[in-house]
Design a protein around this nucleic acid. Sequence first.
DNA 1: CATCCGTGGGA
DNA 2: TTCCCAAGGAT
Length: 368
Amino acid sequence: MPFSAPGAPSLGTAAQRLQEWFSVHARDLPWRSTRDAYAILVSEVMLQQTQVDTVVPAYREWMGRFPDLGTLAEASQEEVLKAWEGLGYYARALNLQRSARLILEHHGGRVPREDEELLALPGIGRYTAGAVQSIAFDLPRAAVDGNVERVLCRFLDIDTPARDRRNQILFGRIVREMMEENSPGDLTQALMELGALVCLPRKPRCDGCPFGGLCLARSRGTVSKRPVPRPRKPTQAIQASVAILTDGERIFLQKRPPEGLMANLWEFPGGKLEEGETPRAALRRELFEELGIKVRGEKKVGTIRHAYTSFSVTLHVYLARMNGSESLPDPSGNLALPSGWFTPEEARRLPMPAANVKILARWVEEPD
DNA sequence: CATCCGTGGGA
DNA sequence: TTCCCAAGGAT
């Protein structure tokens, strides 16, 4: 227990300073003006791997459309995914809806507060359970996110990866001990706020840190080495071709499979280039394989670069005007995926991946 | 334990 | 431009 060893920083003093700092510097975020456990849960799921500035507008919109568990439970999958558009990790949205339904069915419509009940809900793991327990119910449970890991790795000058099991157990103990003399909800948010505003990944503002000399990394001059970075896989570059198929009024979109990358979202048809294949050849091949059609006269309108977590895609975008002499893909036929012809207005209401939203805006809604 | 799962912003 | 990475979870 290094934190109670002689010479280790005093947790009681640190917690007290942190709370005083938070009472002055806490941002006015929309989920901080409610005690509604559902609202807290929504904010925490949205905030998983997603920055506050991205979440705030989406959170406001979501709470306007799905103000309680019941409205979320009754919504269509399409509505839920559309409300999540642009946030990424789309399984979070459907898991949240499934959780809402389970809470209504098994917990009387009240967000549960016990470990086992919360962790049994889809999309709620150790972090989110602890965040809901501490922030919504003021229970002394740790919520250790990337911010808290960074803060504690520096505070204790941890020289092993933050994700190591030993460190995670240590962090949980530290946080719970800091909660003994403080509001668990405030302490959870204060630790994360410190990581977001002061104990920054690259240029930490140690001058403004309430921990001051209590921080071991700071006193030892190792702040820039903490937390120790985790090795990262090289990103892979991929090229793909997509088609804006149009009959003059409508465009053709297809729905992605219910599992895997960007599941259930609608997108323009196309696919990846094979080894040595040109973008145009790939487009024609994919449209024949997927839709059974042979396009001609397609015109390249541009390219879009889009970065995912472990790979980057260059999308070659083509406009193919079907003039009636070609056969059109038939959504009512035996295509592998659900599909349809949509006006631009209809398409805009469908949930789509960010890169496809760009294509829609750039070459369908505002063509040259 | 490693990998998959998105996106946008900052440096 | 490129790289990093953010209020993680599921498998």
